[in-house]
């Protein structure tokens, strides 16, 4: 890129303080991460479950009137045997075309952020983006030991996370808008419902 040096040559020196500040995680009162996560996700209209993940997914499928769901590859989910157990209940993992018609999506999660009620998902082989994006309802299976206090706490501990996959997504509750007269509406483009099942709690 020979043009880069030419492009950069236009950029002069700003008369601004130039010392690089040290990023430290904010000082917060100690608290139980699990109950904080539950409270914060509920505040943004998410639902937290601490029951059997198979039952949660099967219950949602029944309510949605579907026998199919989209998901990460079975061996990428933090609950071994989930896909097989759902199959015995007649609920099948959908693959191939027509995925935009499936109302339920199941994924794992790479981290949970208690302060904001957020789940972090890193895309990769066997961990596609669409199960948490296209369906009406998204279920994330989150291992309790992956809970962190805040985004800043987690990022300081995992500086490599952004480079681990081509896509990283942080999800804080269901899709929302207040564009029309500041009235809250859920499910504009992304899922209308976000469920997090805490695993290993």
């Amino acid at each position: 890129m020979s043009r880069l040096s030419e492009f950069l040559a236009r950029i002069g020196t700003a008369r601004l303080p130039s010392a690089r500040p040290e990023v430290r995680a904010p000082q917060l009162d100690a608290t139980d991460l699990v109950s904080l996560f539950i409270r914060r996700l509920e505040e943004v209209d998410g639902v937290v479950h601490r029951t059997d993940p198979v039952e949660v997914v099967a219950g949602l499928a029944r309510r949605l009137g579907t026998d199919r769901y989209l998901s990460w590859d079975p061996d990428r989910l933090p609950v071994p045997g989930l896909v097989a157990e759902l199959e015995t209940l007649g609920i099948e993992r959908h693959t191939g075309p027509g995925r935009e018609e499936v109302p339920l999506g199941v994924t794992g999660a790479d981290a949970g952020l208690a302060e904001s009620g957020t789940v972090v998902l890193i895309a990769g082989p066997g961990r596609p983006r669409h199960p948490s994006l296209l369906p009406e309802v998204h279920v994330a299976l989150l291992r309790v030991d992956l809970l962190h206090r805040s985004l800043t706490h987690w990022m300081l501990e995992h500086p490599q996370a952004l480079s681990e996959g081509s896509g990283l997504i942080m999800i804080t509750g269901p899709s929302r808008t207040a564009d029309i007269e500041q009235q809250l509406n859920l499910g504009v483009h992304g899922p209308r419902e976000v469920h997090v099942v805490l695993v290993g709690a």
Partner: peptide, 15 residues
């Protein structure tokens, strides 16, 4: 909000 609903990070094309 404590965080926006979606923070999307794109680091290159699909692998």
């Amino acid at each position: 909000q404590r965080l926006s609903v979606y923070t999307t990070v794109v680091t290159g094309p699909r692998r």
